[in-house]
Design a binder for these strands. Structure first.
Length: 413
DNA sequence: TCTGGGGTCCTAGGACCC
DNA sequence: TCTGGGGTCCTAGGACCC
């Protein structure tokens, strides 16, 4: 087998996009983030800034950094453009996240040359057409291709020849083991294992004993570059969820319900947009001491309406709050899994009597959040058939506040 | 220093069925 | 009257990734 898998990974993606958009940021430390760092330019990383770090701490480490709040950019579109370029070289593209993908290039050699030629050509095309730099790793397995792209960062290429892959892999520290995070790293350290080579020669029994059966076996196999995973070209989401963190402790039931309604609506709308409905509903609660719990239930039939999701979530929330013990709530989330295709008609109805001015007059941003609820559903059913319309969308009149919400909820049932 | 939001996968125990 | 084992589904928690 030859090294026919490429892993392509955009360097400091969000930060790079911001630097491209605003040339004044080029060459400067840039941090994209809200509460935590989502992406840091390499100029900022030199000061120790890392993604996931609280933004406040990052600012202290790198006071000159420009902090941009993320989420407003067209990151998704930029990313789509990059992977479209990749598809010109091979149709076998498995997008893993917004900034990385695996490319299967076994069938592309006649047109585009060796794996190395393809890596170079992809990088050149992406740079020329988007201005973004990309690191590329090439190897025989997905795992090793991923490791190679991490070694290549930033802005490089590393190809691992099948004949020398263990020599390459075994000298690397264990933090390159994809799938072993902070908890596993600590356990590996306790076992005295510092490099991937150490893990490879460690006894399987001791790894299983310390890390658990599955994880022990998995990491041991990876250390020998045994990775049977193949490219998955048609991945479908297994769950859809949304969550929201409060900047403060919340103990007031009205706020819970309002936030839960907003989240339920967001999740339901995204389910409908994907033509999916789900049976298992999970509510996540994080308390003021950062403990997280979940409460879940599995319904007989899948749901995708705001109203149904909201009702179930309220019950689950109540069960979860039973263990609050006086603690405030810092986060609420809803996730829906057990997804299946939902064949119902999907419609977005126009705003009922609300123009932009009315929305502005409505005041607080919270009230402006869209609350989509079933309405006029009987009219839709007349038109499309009783069984083909399960949900539609309207916007809650924000001037009616919670009263309007509960009224529509009732009608929705 | 005080911790976002979107996900995936695994584990373990219990219920239930055959 | 007391008993087995396998399979599946559900719930809750946790590790991990970007």
């Amino acid at each position: 087998m030859s090294a026919d898998i490429l892993h392509v990974d955009l360097d400091a993606f969000y930060a790079s996009v911001e630097q491209l958009r605003n040339p004044a940021l080029a060459g400067k430390p840039v941090i994209v983030g809200g509460g935590v760092v989502l992406s840091a330019s390499y100029e900022a990383r030199r000061f120790g800034v890392r993604s996931g770090m609280p933004t406040g701490r990052a600012r202290r480490m790198c006071p000159r950094a420009v902090v941009v709040s993320g989420g407003f950019g067209d990151y998704g579109q930029v990313s789509d453009g990059v992977f479209e370029i990749c598809r010109r070289f091979t149709p076998n593209v498995e997008q893993v996240s917004i900034d990385e993908a695996f490319l299967g290039v076994a069938g592309a050699h006649r047109l585009f040359g060796s794996t190395g030629d393809i890596a170079v050509a992809v990088r050149a095309a992406v740079l020329a057409e988007t201005g973004l730099t990309l690191s590329v790793g090439g190897a025989r397995t997905k795992f090793l291709a991923k490791v190679a792209s991490q070694v290549a960062k930033p802005d490089g290429v590393v190809l691992v020849d099948p004949a020398s892959e263990l020599r390459f892999l075994h000298r690397l520290p264990t933090r390159y083991l994809w799938g072993a995070g902070p908890v596993m790293q600590a356990k590996l350290t306790e076992l005295g294992l510092e490099t991937i080579g150490d893990v490879a020669v460690a006894s399987l029994a001791s790894l299983k004993n310390r890390l658990g059966n599955a994880t022990g076996r998995h990491l041991h196999a990876l250390a020998w570059n045994r990775d049977p995973r193949v490219l998955e070209l048609d991945r479908r989401a297994r769950s859809v969820g949304s969550q929201s963190t409060f900047g403060r402790d919340v103990t007031d039931p009205d706020t819970y319900r309002r936030v839960l309604a907003t989240i339920a609506d967001r999740v339901a709308a995204r389910l409908r947009a994907k033509h999916r409905a789900g049976r298992t509903i999970t509510v996540r609660i994080r308390f003021s001491d950062f403990q997280s719990i979940t409460r879940s239930t599995t319904l007989r039939a899948p749901v995708a309406t705001t109203g149904a999701l909201y009702d179930v979530s309220c019950e689950l929330l109540a069960r979860g709050l039973a263990v609050a013990g006086g603690r405030g709530v810092r986060l609420l989330g809803i996730s829906v899994s057990g997804l299946r295709v939902d064949p119902h008609v999907q419609l977005e109805l126009p705003l009922p009597g609300l123009d932009g001015g009315a929305l502005r007059r409505a005041g607080s941003p919270r009230e402006l959040e869209r609350i989509r609820l079933d309405s006029n559903i009987d009219a839709l059913r007349d038109r499309f058939g009783r069984d083909s319309v399960a949900h539609a969308s309207v916007l809650l009149d924000p001037r009616r506040g919670r009263d309007g919400l509960s009224e529509l909820m009732t009608r929705n049932r």
